[in-house]
Design a protein around this nucleic acid. Structure first.
Length: 587
RNA sequence: GCCCCCGUAGCUCAGUGGAUAGAGCAUCCCCCUCCUAAGGGGAGGGUCACACGUUCGAUUCGUGUCGGGGGCGCCA
């Protein structure tokens, strides 16, 4: 039992005497000012109104009824009716033993009661390298999943692979066109196809392997394809030209499918495989792994999309207009009705997403968390609408929106544009600032807030850089323990009552807070709380380090101090691991 | 026009229905004969955008105003 739990139970006993049935309103908080005790309770003020009593008198009565305790030093009444509780130092010191005993699981709890939670994140189209925007979703989702797990949830990490649909067709087409280029067949490359060099590389690999097997004459390719509009009009944002541009692209896709025939799936599959394995590798290097890579295509293949749409139709939630099939999303709180099947018979992305979410519910998760880029926020009402229409509980779904990250280098915004292909990839970022700094910086802000990512700062190996600041604290303790040379497990019998300085008490209090931080972080879906906690903890350690020498002559004092810093090292390592950041022994 | 995020120290940002609102950077002063100075101590710096409301109590919750950023396809 933690001191906080202990004090809460004492207060409950006292309150039960005075106001039976009100015990559950008790909450303890940690006051900011040291003079206000280690914990503070506002229950007297909260009960004053219903009991029609003066809050200070109520507080007096509660304090008078507090059972005696080994850990409680004193209880004071202050301000408008606060009950301020002061603990004996021994109450704090026990945390050092707790940490040594629990090791890597210190901070874990059963707060989530084993609830089955799915966290779906990244889910980028496998049509090219991950960029820095995906990186934030990856870092956030991975840390969030870790935090939820530590707080006692059964977590499934999932990547939704958009392997069906037009974007993949565009990638397959792009690859084929580059392949043709390499055989001297010059079909003008569409502006809205994938421009990146990785497409040329895939084309080269196919050419190396299969020679000219997939070559077709240019006039046959362009036969019947809507004409390409003027590029300048498209770039200028002319609506008609843009539509024409898309029609041109769709025409080329149709041509590639027609001419390649049974070979088309080869191009499609090759490109998908290449991009997906590249993405998977990228993420693994970034410390991000998934339990499930869920294929969108499989939803079509197993008829799940059709059956989800059928269910909606059967329940009268669909209607036809302009040849398309519309979902009455407005009946369930969305602002517009949405198309699920286009006039050309193709299902929309929304249709497969309905099937996907229905499938998530079928798999029996108690809670589903979708991590999406903030640009999708308008999408939430329609997905929730679909859930309600399918008689599924929309409260089980939480969409965590991740705002964009903007890179800064030399104080200047790094310009990015997907269109021109001039985006910075996650790989480039990782190689520039390192995995640890990237992981840490991504979660240093609340996820729903714009992130300014300062590349120079993330790279700097100085105290300005919070990653190094925290890692350095860990390395410092390792260094002290190495200097001492003893076995950490031998610190079991350290006399912790030797730890009485203000530095030591501050540190112990901080260590004791860690499990609460993990729980709060899970509850708020906010891994950044861990990052801020670690900065504070590292700060406490550095202050202590500078103020006191640990390897002192007095053997008992030395062992007590080493036990404390070893516990600090453990918590630093535990917290860093939740964020996917290394805890180095040397720097 | 509609929607989302934000407005807290010079800058970048935490924070909370509670008491005297914090950190880092920047500025100024100071600390290695010492377990890693990638560190530490101290000083200055605030109308928590503004108004009204709810409350015993609001920087926190609600409404409105102003200001900044972003998003709004039969795209995914």
């Amino acid at each position: 039992m933690t001191p906080k739990e202990h004090l809460t139970s004492l207060l409950k006993l006292a309150v039960a005497n005075i106001a039976p049935g009100q015990e559950d309103t008790i909450e303890l908080e940690r006051p900011k000012a040291a003079g206000h005790g280690d914990f503070s309770c506002n229950v007297a003020m909260r009960l004053a109104k219903t009991l029609k009593k003066n809050p200070r008198e109520l507080a007096q009565a509660i304090v008078a009824d507090l059972p005696a305790s080994q850990l409680l030093e004193k209880a004071e009444i202050a301000g408008a009716g606060f009950i301020n509780l002061f603990l004996k130092p021994a109450a704090w010191a026990q945390v050092v033993h707790t940490i040594r005993t629990q090791g890597g699981t210190y901070g874990h709890s059963d707060a989530g009661h084993g609830q089955k939670v799915q966290v779906e994140f990244v889910s980028a189209n496998p049509t090219g390298p991950l960029h820095v925007g995906h990186g934030r979703g990856a870092a956030y989702g991975a840390s969030l999943a870790n935090v939820l797990e530590a707080a006692g949830h059964a977590v499934t990490r999932e990547y939704y692979v958009n392997d069906a649909g037009r974007q993949m067709d565009i990638l397959a087409l792009s690859t084929w066109l580059r392949y043709l280029e390499q055989h001297g067949i010059l079909v003008p490359f569409p502006t809205n196809a994938y421009q990146g060099d990785y497409v040329r590389e895939m084309a080269r690999a196919i050419a190396d392997e299969h020679g000219d097997r997939y070559v077709h004459e240019p006039w046959r390719i362009l036969d019947g394809v809507p004409l390409r509009p003027d590029d300048e009009l498209v770039a200028g944002g002319d609506a008609e030209a843009k539509m024409q541009n898309e029609a041109h692209l769709d025409g080329l896709i149709a041509a590639s499918k027609r001419l390649l025939g049974a070979e088309y799936p080869y191009f499609h599959g090759f490109a998908l495989n290449e991009q997906l394995s590249d993405c998977r590798e990228d993420l693994i290097e970034f410390g991000v792994e998934f339990n499930e890579w869920f294929s969108e295509k499989s939803l079509f293949d197993t008829g799940k999309v059709a059956s989800a749409v059928d269910t909606l139709k059967k329940n009268g939630h669909l209607y036809e207009q302009d040849g398309a099939l519309w979902f009455k999303a407005t009946a369930f709180g969305d602002e517009k009705d949405r198309v699920v099947q286009r006039a050309n018979g193709e299902y929309t992305y929304f249709a497969s997403d309905i099937a996907y979410h229905a499938n998530k519910f079928e798999r029996g998760f108690d809670r589903i968390i979708d991590v999406w880029g903030a640009d999708h926020h308008g999408y939430i009402p329609r997905v929730k609408a679909a859930l309600i229409a399918l008689e599924l509980d929309p409260e089980k779904l939480t969409v965590a929106l991740v705002q964009f990250a903007v890179l800064y280098r030399g104080g200047q915004k790094v310009q990015m544009s997907t269109r021109s292909g001039s985006f910075v990839t996650l790989r480039e970022l990782r190689s520039e600032v390192g995995n640890d700094a990237a992981r840490f910086y991504y979660v240093l802000r609340k996820s729903d807030q714009h992130l300014d990512f300062d590349l120079d700062l993330a790279k700097s190996q100085s105290s300005d850089n919070p990653v190094y600041y925290i890692q350095y604290a860990h390395a410092r303790v390792c260094s002290v323990l190495a200097e001492w040379g003893g076995n950490v497990s031998g610190l079991e019998h350290a006399a912790l009552d030797k730890l009485t300085s203000a530095y030591e008490l501050t540190l112990m209090k901080r260590l004791l807070e860690y499990p609460e931080i993990v729980v709060a972080s899970a509850r708020e879906l906010s891994p950044h709380l861990i990052a801020y906690y670690l900065k504070d903890l590292a700060g406490d350690l550095h202050t202590y380090y500078n103020a006191e020498k640990f390897l002192v002559e007095d053997e008992a004092l030395k062992l007590a101090r080493l036990a404390l810093v070893a516990a600090t090292r453990q918590v630093l390592a535990n917290g860093l691991s939740l964020l996917g950041v290394q805890a180095p022994e040397k720097m």
